[in-house]
Design a protein around this nucleic acid. Structure first.
Ligand SMILES: NC(=O)c1ccc[n+]([C@@H]2O[C@H](COP(=O)([O-])OP(=O)(O)OC[C@H]3O[C@@H](n4cnc5c(N)ncnc54)[C@H](O)[C@@H]3O)[C@@H](O)[C@H]2O)c1
Ligand SMILES: NC(=O)c1ccc[n+]([C@@H]2O[C@H](COP(=O)([O-])OP(=O)(O)OC[C@H]3O[C@@H](n4cnc5c(N)ncnc54)[C@H](O)[C@@H]3O)[C@@H](O)[C@H]2O)c1
Lengths: 189, 189
DNA sequence: CAGTGCTTGTGTTCACATTCACAAGCACCA
DNA sequence: TGGTGCTTGTGAATGTGAACACAAGCACTG
């Protein structure tokens, strides 16, 4: 979240940012931000604030986002296609290098420059330097597909299907349930 | 989250569920679930658990999700199209009834049964019974578009653009930043 | 070079959410 | 009908994260 906000400031040409500025932009209180940063060492300048470049570098280091990371996309449906063409992953250094699907109609076709491969040819992703996967298959197939990913050596899964998936604890899953997020709104409205 | 899990159980024909079962499924502890439910009154049966139908009804009531709610979709790009055709909103009783875009190439075309209208014709959504909107426009246009939605009487916005938007405090915004969620994974991997 | 204004970093306080532990209560059975 | 086995609902304990308040420190100014 900080990375996104600070990257935005950099694009606008800002060199320094104070915890107060960030707090206003992110709708947080400023001590929150200073505490968060200070957990990872003191890299601000009293009286001035934090240097934007330094901050981006440190946060990328902390989150292990330095350099580029390869990711696989599973499921070339409507959402999968949107994700495959989404440039926003670049900010965090992600690149979708392989796409898989089960449907013969889709296998062999291309999304952008990337060919859709058969899920049967998933193989050992780890050996190809892929440790992350985005799961955009129907909920019914999510658990089964996740298990194949784990076999393939994947260490982190972004699950777009509206269900929980169970994996060995060395594997991290992050689930996004878009409809559920919308479901939160009426309560407050 | 509970609603999704319990709806899943109902589809499987289960009549009752205990806090322990739910806890296992959602990777939580069981007292958490009992506390959460008890804040809204006691509607379980000791020795048995919670009746699935009752639970779904109560949670829908609590979250103000009883009945159907109309929503507008702004931005008929790749993501917008996927969302417009996504059946998963139905679980929470949402229906996308209007779609808007700015591009002359898209206006007049249909996604499913819904015609894409010009954003100029947004008008008063409230009067048409629309209190929720899904924002799937480029980040640069998000703030400006959100303001038009607020003018149109929208009370809740699901923002898919990777940026914060500022709205009057009577309006609730829920932002989903998909790339950011993926960005969380490497830290743990 | 002392004074002013601003911002960081952090010990302490505070608030809240999670977890524990157990009494109360229902169902089933002998 | 009394006993057994579960499960709920909830006060109390615990843990965790947010907010506060302020000393320490940098920059700029006259
Ligand atoms: N469309 C949306 O806007 C949206 C929003 C939120 C969540 N989701 C979720 O994302 C997932 C995908 O949604 P979608 O709209 O793209 O669906 P879709 O039906 O358009 O696409 C699903 C794709 O997955 C492929 N597939 C099915 N089983 C597979 C398997 N075992 N291995 C590999 N590929 C397989 C299908 O061939 C298809 O191409 C679903 O779980 C859906 O609930 C979608
Ligand atoms: N594609 C994805 O998978 C993905 C993932 C995460 C987030 N997002 C975000 O969702 C948003 C949409 O992404 P997309 O991939 O669909 O982009 P897109 O470029 O395919 O579509 C954007 C659409 O918005 C329309 N638009 C532009 N300005 C508008 C305005 N002022 N009013 C109404 N409509 C307007 C455009 O005409 C276009 O049809 C972006 O903010 C993007 O960052 C997309």
């Amino acid at each position: 979240m900080y990375l996104r906000a600070i990257s935005f400031l950099r694009r606008q040409g800002q060199d320094y940012v104070s915890s107060r500025d960030l707090a206003d932009q992110l709708h947080l209180k400023s001590p929150q931000i200073r505490k968060d940063f200070s957990y990872f060492g003191a890299f601000g300048v009293k009286g001035i604030g934090y240097r934007v470049d330094t901050l981006i570098g440190r946060i990328r280091e902390i989150l292990k986002l330095s350099g580029t990371q390869k990711a696989a996309l599973i499921g070339a449906g409507r959402l999968g296609k949107a994700l495959a063409l989404y440039p926003g992953f670049g900010l965090y250094g992600f690149e979708i290098v392989e796409i898989f699907d089960v449907s013969p109609k889709k296998i062999g076709k291309k999304i952008g420059n990337t060919k859709i491969q058969s899920i049967k040819h998933l193989g050992n992703l780890e050996k190809r330097g892929i440790r992350l996967a985005i799961l955009a298959v129907p909920a019914e197939a999510a658990q089964e597909t996740a298990e194949r990913l784990v076999e393939g050596g994947v260490r982190g899964i972004l699950n777009m299907a509206p269900c929980y998936i169970t994996v060995p604890k060395r594997v991290r899953v992050q689930t996004i349930d878009i409809a559920m997020e919308l479901g939160i709104l009426p309560y407050y409205v």
